[in-house]
Simulated scan of single mutants.
Amino acid sequence: MNKRSFLSTALAVQVLALVPGLVRAQAPAGLAPGPVRITSTLPAGSGPDTVARAMGEQLQARWGRAVVVDPRPGGAGVVAINAMKGQPPTGNDLLVADVGNLSINPLIFRKLAYDPEKDLVPVALLYKTAFFVAVSADGPYKTMKDLIAAMGNKARPLSYGSNAVGGPIHLGSARLEGALGVEMLHVPYKETGQLYAAVSTGEVDWAYGSIATAGPLVKGGKLRFLAVADSTRSPAMPDVPTLAEAGGPGGIDALSWVALMAPRGTSPATVDAINQDVNAALRQPAMAERYAAFGFAASPGPAAQVGDLMRADRARYAEVLRRVKVSVD
């Protein structure tokens, strides 16, 4: 090797070492030639879309091939899932879906165009996120105890909002309602932007919201977080108490999660290889930075944990739906 070749090779190795995951640049076993497409049930520009694109960048660097994120929101996830579920099970077509698509839809849709258990294969958990109790910053509720006291006023039932009938926010709120033994008015909105604007103006009394969705209005002084519906405080907002700490019921959490899925028939070897690369990406500082901005919690682990979450949350929401009657044609 001449001096010029040696220096070029040494420089290339140094550059690769600076980019996490690029040294291997090897696609998982089973992937067909060509790009990888990640279809998403979640809208472009949302927090989940942002981290899905960040994950796509990490996988593209690791695999040495294009990884494209294709948001197709609509139809409670049906649009995206139908576009992906029949694709060849090589690992070149993946899906980003949330708890609503995977655990709740089978409970509330009389005719659902897909079966999450039969049409899809869990690959990796991308993140979990907890919901906070959000109220207007200028409203009368300064603490969770204030809000709970008002919930018990039968002369003026309180209202809570959600971004979808039968969605995680709606059913999580109904779960809190049941735990407190009160009745409130549910007001659904079409978009999260409309929902939190309505909370900020007092059009509805409160709503569950995440740091990704409602956090910007908290920072802007329009909303206040009274409590987080989780067993522990959020590292992103450690000053906000848990529901139990704030005087609410214990053991009542409200969480959402997003997972990476593949079409039925994708081989266990391919699933395992993608799972390992996703988990490696989740441990990268660049991903940790993206996650921290939205209050998302990474939970690297085997693909089986997604299936466990799907089944556990289906049972949890089935219990809520026995009291809150929701069905969609």
Rank of each mutant, 00 (worst) to 15 (best):
Q26H: 13
P35Q: 10
A52N: 11
P48L: 06
V69R: 04
G75D: 07
P249Q: 07
T201H: 10
V278K: 02
A212Y: 02
M84A: 15
L18M: 14
V36S: 07
G265A: 08
A236C: 05
L120S: 03
P35M: 07
L147S: 05
A113F: 03
N279P: 03
L255P: 00
V68C: 07
T129F: 13
D313R: 02
E117F: 08
M287Q: 12
F296S: 02
G77I: 00
R322D: 11
K325F: 05
P241S: 10
V320D: 01
K111G: 02
S162K: 02
V324S: 08
F6G: 07
A312E: 13
V204H: 05
L94W: 10
A207S: 15
G45R: 07
S103W: 00
Y141A: 08
K118Y: 05
A244M: 04
I81E: 08
Q284E: 15
T192I: 08
R264V: 06
I169E: 13
W63E: 02
G161M: 05
F294I: 00
A80E: 10
K142L: 10
V187K: 12
V36A: 06
W206L: 08
A273D: 08
T232M: 10
K118N: 12
I38A: 03
A32W: 03
V99L: 15
R322G: 13
S5T: 15
W257C: 03
D239Q: 14
V306A: 06
V15C: 11
G100P: 00
W257M: 03
L126K: 01
T129A: 12
Y189H: 12
A318G: 15
P33H: 03
G30K: 08
A207T: 09
H186V: 02
I108F: 09
L158W: 07
V328I: 14
K85A: 12
L309H: 00
A244S: 11
L59N: 05
G167W: 00
A174I: 01
R72Q: 15
L243G: 02
S267H: 04
S327K: 07
M184F: 01
P122H: 08
G220D: 14
Y196H: 14
V182K: 01
Q284R: 13
P28M: 11
P89K: 04
D239H: 13
G247P: 03
Q58W: 00
G202H: 10
T266R: 03
H170C: 11
L31G: 09
A44C: 01
R264K: 15
S46T: 09
P71Q: 09
A212P: 02
A155Q: 15
R316W: 06
